[in-house]
């Protein structure tokens, strides 16, 4: 039995070492190589010069479309974890509603709740349309032009049914900047 135990111990250790090399090192490096070779933009984080289109950021002032009221700190991802009967959540949502009303934006569910990642880069089309009047006024643009811009920025559900349609706030604001 003792001999059997030592034999198994040796096997266990050597199998672990083999797989450490194969699965722990070679496999991720091979995937990294292929990813960097063929999809280098995505593999590196979908970075534009103003940030990653996948990671939300804070937009200051009425001249920009706002994302969801997340903390937008990619070094500390996660939701608020406040439950459905949390007084704190009621208070936070009330404050967010008041803030939106002050900016003359009709509150929508996505614009008063926080996301699961804490860095949601997207809003639903309805959330973007809700901000059109406010943004057009702050920039002195025509409402129709801004509304049209939003409509060109909608990503439909993939293959028509996977996920929900969304607008990427960074892409929308980058397009907004060039609008005259």
């Amino acid at each position: 039995m003792n001999r059997q135990f030592l034999l198994n111990l040796r096997r266990g250790f050597l199998v672990t070492v083999c797989f450490f090399v194969l699965l722990g090192i070679a496999y991720p490096l091979a995937v990294t190589g292929i990813g960097q070779a063929f999809f280098s933009s995505q593999a590196n984080g979908s970075l534009t010069k103003n940030g990653s289109t996948l990671i939300g950021q804070q937009w200051n002032g009425p001249k920009w479309f706002q994302g969801r009221p997340d903390a937008d700190d990619p070094m500390a991802t996660g939701g608020t974890n406040l439950g459905p009967r949390s007084k704190t959540l009621v208070k936070d949502v009330k404050e967010q509603i008041a803030l939106l009303k002050k900016e003359r934006i009709t509150p929508t569910p996505d614009l008063v709740t926080t996301s699961g990642s804490g860095v949601d880069a997207d809003i639903a089309p309805v959330d973007a349309y809700a901000q059109v009047n406010a943004v057009a006024k702050a920039r002195g643009l025509s409402v129709a032009a801004v509304r049209h811009l939003v409509s060109t920025q909608i990503h439909p559900a993939q293959f028509g049914f996977l996920g929900s349609p969304y607008v990427d706030v960074l892409q929308l604001n980058e397009a907004l900047r060039t609008l005259r």
């Binding site: 439950g83 959540l89 569910p109």
Partner: peptide, 25 residues
């Protein structure tokens, strides 16, 4: 979401979005 409704937004046609990502719904 009951808390969001209690804060004054009872019309939530896309369901409970607290803690959820827009791209998934």
């Amino acid at each position: 979401n009951p808390a969001v409704a209690a804060a004054g937004l009872s019309h939530q046609p896309t369901g409970n979005m607290e803690g959820k990502e827009v791209r998934f719904g």
